[in-house]
C-alpha cells in the first residue's frame, strides 16, 4: 500500500500541491539541462563538458572548494568547540556572526573580500610584505569559498558537540586517559560523521558558488576561471549545449556528494542507536 491510513485529512491536497510545485519549479526545468546536453550527442557532450578549458575550471572549483572545506574543517571545528564548551564575553555576537555567510548576499561578500585582500589594499598591503598574493588566483578563490562554507561546518558540528554526553569524557579520564588522549580517541571519533557531513556540505556549496567568487577569482580562461563562470560565458556566447554539458557534470558531482552525505548520516544513526 502506498500510504498507511491515518485520521489526519488533507493528504491528497497537500501532497498534490507539493508534487506539482516541485515538478514545475525544480524537476522539469532541471531535466531540461539533461535533455539539452543529451541533444548535442555523446561526442558533443564530452567535447564541451570535458574540454581542456572545462577541466581547468573544474580543477580550480573543486580544488579551491576542497581547500576551503579543509580550512573550515579545522577552524569551523574549533569555533564550534569554543561556542559549545567555553563561556566568554561576546559569545552571543560571535555566535550570530557565524551565520553571516547565510544572510549576506554573495555579491556583497565578493566585493568586500576583494577590496580587503587584493594587492596594495587594506590587508593586501600586509600580504604584499609577506609576498603572498591573495586575490585573482587560487588563494583568492579559496578565501571566498572559506567565507561561504564556514557556517556549514560550524552548524553541523554544534548540535552533535552539545549532545556529546559529558560522561563519555569522564569515563575516559577515570580510565586513566590524559585530556589529549580523551580528545583524540573519544571526542574526535564521535564527531567524525558530523565533521564529514559539514565538510561535504561546505565542499558542495563551494563547488557551485558564483557570486562571492567572481570578484576575487581573476576570471582568466585556463587559469582563474571557475566552473560556474564558464557556464555563464558559454551562455553569453549562446553555446547552450556546452553550458548544459558543464552543468550536467557539476550536477552529477553534486548528486554524488548528496549521496555520500546521506550515507554518512545513515551510518552515524546506526552507530548511535
Amino acid at each position: 500500500m502506498f500510504r498507511r491510513r491515518s485520521a489526519i485529512p488533507g493528504f491528497g491536497l497537500t501532497l498534490g500541491i507539493t508534487l506539482t510545485l516541485l515538478s514545475v519549479v525544480v524537476l522539469i526545468p532541471l531535466s531540461a539541462v539533461a535533455l539539452k546536453a543529451a541533444g548535442i550527442g555523446w561526442d558533443g557532450f564530452v567535447a564541451a563538458g570535458f574540454s581542456e578549458r572545462a577541466m581547468r575550471a573544474y580543477r580550480l572549483s573543486f580544488g579551491a572548494a576542497f581547500a576551503a572545506a579543509a580550512i573550515n574543517g579545522v577552524f569551523g571545528m574549533i569555533t564550534a568547540w569554543a561556542l559549545v564548551r567555553y563561556q566568554f564575553p561576546g559569545k552571543t555576537v560571535l555566535n550570530a556572526l557565524v551565520d553571516l555567510p547565510f544572510a549576506l548576499p554573495t555579491a556583497v561578500a565578493g566585493i568586500a573580500l576583494v577590496t580587503l585582500y587584493q594587492p596594495g589594499n587594506l590587508l593586501g598591503v600586509w600580504l604584499d610584505a609577506l609576498h603572498i598574493k591573495a586575490a585573482f588566483n587560487f588563494t583568492g578563490v579559496t578565501i571566498a569559498l572559506t567565507f561561504i562554507g564556514l557556517p556549514f561546518v560550524v552548524r553541523t558540528l554544534e548540535p552533535i558537540m552539545r549532545d556529546l554526553a559529558a560522561d563519555v569524557e569522564e569515563a575516559a579520564a577515570s580510565l586513566g586517559a590524559s585530556r589529549w588522549q580523551t580528545v583524540m580517541r573519544v571526542v574526535l571519533p564521535s564527531l567524525g560523521p558530523a565533521w564529514l557531513t559539514g565538510f561535504a556540505l561546505a565542499f558542495a556549496r563551494g563547488v557551485g558558488e558564483y557570486g562571492s567568487v567572481i570578484f576575487i577569482a581573476g576570471n582568466l580562461p585556463f587559469k582563474t576561471e571557475i566552473a560556474p563562470l564558464l557556464i555563464v560565458i558559454q551562455l553569453e556566447q549562446y553555446e547552450y549545449g556546452a553550458a548544459a554539458s558543464i552543468a550536467v557534470v557539476m550536477l552529477l558531482v553534486s548528486f554524488a556528494m548528496l549521496f555520500v552525505i546521506n550515507a554518512i548520516q545513515a551510518y552515524a544513526r546506526r552507530l548511535a542507536a
Binding site: A165, D167, V168, E170, A171, A172, A173, S174, L175, G176, A177, S178, V186, P189, S190, G192, L271, A272
Partner: peptide, 20 residues
C-alpha cells in the same frame, strides 16, 4: 587529584560506552 590519576573504576548511570 584528577580523575585520571586516581585509579578508580567508574560505572556511569548511562554506561558511557564509547559508541565507535
Amino acid at each position: 587529584a584528577g580523575a585520571a590519576e586516581r585509579g578508580v573504576g567508574f560505572v556511569f548511570q548511562q554506561y558511557a560506552l564509547f559508541k565507535h
